[in-house]
Amino acid sequence: MKPEEIQFGDWARIFMGENPPAFFIEALLRIAIIYIILMVSMRIMGKRMGSLLTRNEMIALVCLAAANGVALQSPERGILPVIIIAVVIIGFQKYIAWRAMKSTKFESLVLDDVDLLVKDGYLQLDKMEQTRLTRERLMAEFRHNGINNVGRVQRAYLEANGKFSILQYPDEKIGLSTLPNWDKDFHESLPKAPGNYACRSCGNIVKGAKPTHECDRCHLQDWEEAVIT
């Protein structure tokens, strides 16, 4: 379309574009066929497509959506290419699932692996940096699970699909509070562990007077009184 052909107030062009009126009737048939293609494709690719997706499954879903959009909007584009693209994507996904079942190395390479974020109440900062996960995002996940003390966390994993798995100690533990620093009133209401201080960076616990030295684990100097829950 030439620039001089674009005029504000041309409501027929704005709402209908340059498509002939007959195309809107045809679009109903296209939508029905493409909907069936998507439904069958998702069904064949398995129940995982209805839950949290891995990166590969997300890529497959985006590719299907991109292929279908063109056929819905342009009368010059047929539906057969959409069917071919869907078959290729489904076949590729099935192959990846089959290879992943045969080889754990291939599964880790293509679908990613589980990362350990917390071990025995201590934040694994190297893994958090590797997965580009912020400390506040992890603390928010703990608060969402009713955990107000990092020391209660025996293990915290970041699964390949981006979901968190958290295992807790059954008894009381001393550790770093998961509350935000600005919520001082709530923080003061938590039971403290006198003579124990937690590193705000990694959750390392030291006993005695408030430290004036760097943390042995993360080499930062930022301490607060530990809590016990």
Results as ranks from 00 to 15, higher is better:
Trp182Arg: 11
Val62Ile: 13
Glu4Gln: 15
Glu141Tyr: 04
Cys63Ala: 14
Ala198Met: 06
Leu158Met: 04
Gln154Leu: 11
Gln124Ile: 01
Arg132Asn: 09
Leu80Gln: 01
Asn161Arg: 07
Gly78Gln: 01
Asn161Met: 09
Leu179Arg: 04
Leu123Pro: 10
Glu129Asp: 12
Asn56Ile: 13
Trp11Gly: 11
Lys184Thr: 15
Asn161His: 02
Leu111Phe: 00
Asp10Ser: 08
Ala67Lys: 00
Glu172Ala: 15
Leu125Thr: 03
Asp222Glu: 13
Ile33Gln: 00
Leu28Gly: 15
Leu133Lys: 03
Pro180Lys: 05
Gly46Asn: 10
Asp10Leu: 03
Asn181Tyr: 14
Val114Thr: 12
Val153Thr: 01
Gln130Ala: 10
Ile44Arg: 07
Asp171Ser: 08
Asn56Leu: 12
Leu38Asp: 06
Ala60Cys: 13
Met42Ala: 13
Leu29Ser: 04
Val87Arg: 01
Leu220Ser: 15
Val206Ile: 14
Leu158Thr: 03
Gly9Met: 02
Ala32Ile: 09
Ala209Ile: 12
Leu179Val: 05
Val82Lys: 02
Leu111Tyr: 00
Ile37Glu: 00
Leu123His: 05
Cys215Lys: 06
Cys215His: 07
Gln221Leu: 12
Gly121Asp: 04
Pro211Tyr: 08
Asn145Trp: 02
Cys215Gln: 02
Gly146Ser: 01
Ile166Pro: 04
Ile44Lys: 09
Asp113Pro: 04
Leu29Asn: 02
Pro211Val: 06
Ala22Val: 05
Asp113Tyr: 08
Gly17Asn: 04
Val62Thr: 11
Ala226Ile: 09
Met49Leu: 15
Val150Glu: 00
Lys94Trp: 11
Ser41Arg: 05
Ile37Cys: 06
Val150Tyr: 00
Arg143Tyr: 00
Trp223Ala: 11
Leu80Cys: 01
Lys173His: 12
Tyr95Val: 13
Ser41Gln: 04
Arg55Met: 14
Ser189Val: 00
Ala97Met: 10
Ala156Met: 10
Gly203Tyr: 09
Ser108Cys: 04
